[in-house]
Amino acid sequence: MPPRKTAATASTEPPRRSSRIVSQPKEEAKAAPKAAPKAAKKRPAAAETEDAAAPEAAAKKAKSGKSDAEEDAPEDESDGKLAKIDIGDVLPSVTLKNEKDEDVDVAGLAAEKGVVFFLVPKADTPGCTTQACAFRDIYPDFTSVNYDVYCLSADKPAAQTKWQTKKELPYALISDPKRVLITALGAGEGGKTKRSHFIFEKGGKLLERKMPVKAADSASLALEFIKGL
């Protein structure tokens, strides 16, 4: 039998460690230093420009009186074009120049009288001169039945004035360089003007069109039609 350990002997022995692991309380996480506030991202220059332009755009829109939908709507691609003019249709309102380089509202030409438009391919060329002089020679016969005569071509006013003076043409000449009215009348295909004439009654309704027509016959045929009304 082993001798009993005395109290002194027991006190010199190291204390026995428990095999059971005691979970130690985790050390409280040290408070992380607060992150410095992020600097505001610099806005792109384009955005700043848009913001600067916004008040100005709003002012312009308010001045125009247009809604957002109207402002954003695409432009009408048909601007500068006229619908085709058929028998029975009314002469459209379009502004062209006369030989004096003055603005002329075409629809207004037929407000008080009937009108005859005769179309020529090019001023001061042989065939066109024949046609123009034929209308010149019987011009009083048209005015006597309350009809005015106009020569319509794609020539510039300066060229028309020169031709008018040279041949003593008593009627006005209408310049349609973009062939807006000429094309609407059906005489402007292929970038050229077809020799023809068109008769509109007072008020602007189209009564007669002759296309093609011979240069020497255009004036007499137009007058014959009017007298037959």
Rank of each mutant, 00 (worst) to 15 (best):
C133D: 01
D89T: 13
L91T: 07
D72A: 15
A111C: 07
A110I: 05
S93E: 14
V116S: 08
D76Y: 02
I87Y: 05
V90F: 09
K100L: 11
D103Q: 12
E99I: 00
S78E: 15
S67C: 11
K84I: 12
E75T: 10
E75G: 10
G80M: 14
E102T: 03
T125V: 04
I87E: 08
L82W: 08
D89M: 00
I87Q: 08
D124T: 10
L82H: 04
V120K: 01
K113I: 04
K122I: 01
C133S: 03
R136L: 02
D105K: 11
L109Q: 07
K97F: 09
K100H: 09
T129H: 07
S93V: 01
E102G: 03
K81I: 02
D105N: 14
A107N: 13
D105I: 04
G80W: 12
A107R: 10
F117D: 05
D72N: 10
A111S: 14
D86S: 13
K84Y: 12
V104I: 13
L96M: 09
C133Y: 03
V90W: 05
A107M: 06
V106D: 04
L96Q: 05
A110M: 02
G108E: 15
S78Y: 10
C128T: 10
F118A: 05
E102Q: 12
P126Q: 07
C128E: 02
D101N: 13
K122C: 03
E102P: 05
D68W: 07
V90Q: 10
N98E: 00
L82G: 02
P121R: 03
G114S: 05
D72P: 00
P126V: 06
V115N: 05
L119V: 15
I87S: 09
D124M: 01
P92F: 08
D124V: 03
V106L: 11
A110Y: 04
G108H: 02
L109C: 08
C128P: 02
A123H: 04
A132P: 06
A73I: 07
V104R: 11
D79K: 06
T130W: 08
N98S: 00
D137E: 14
C133F: 03
G88S: 13
G114C: 08
A111P: 06
D72G: 04
G114Y: 03
D76H: 04
E112H: 14
K84E: 15
D137W: 13
L109N: 08
Q131Y: 06
G127R: 13
D68Y: 03
D68N: 09
E102L: 07
E112V: 07
S67T: 15
D103A: 14
G80L: 14
D79V: 15
G127L: 09
A111D: 15
C128I: 12
I85C: 07
F118M: 06
L109R: 04
K81M: 11
K113Q: 12
K100R: 07
D124L: 02
C133G: 00
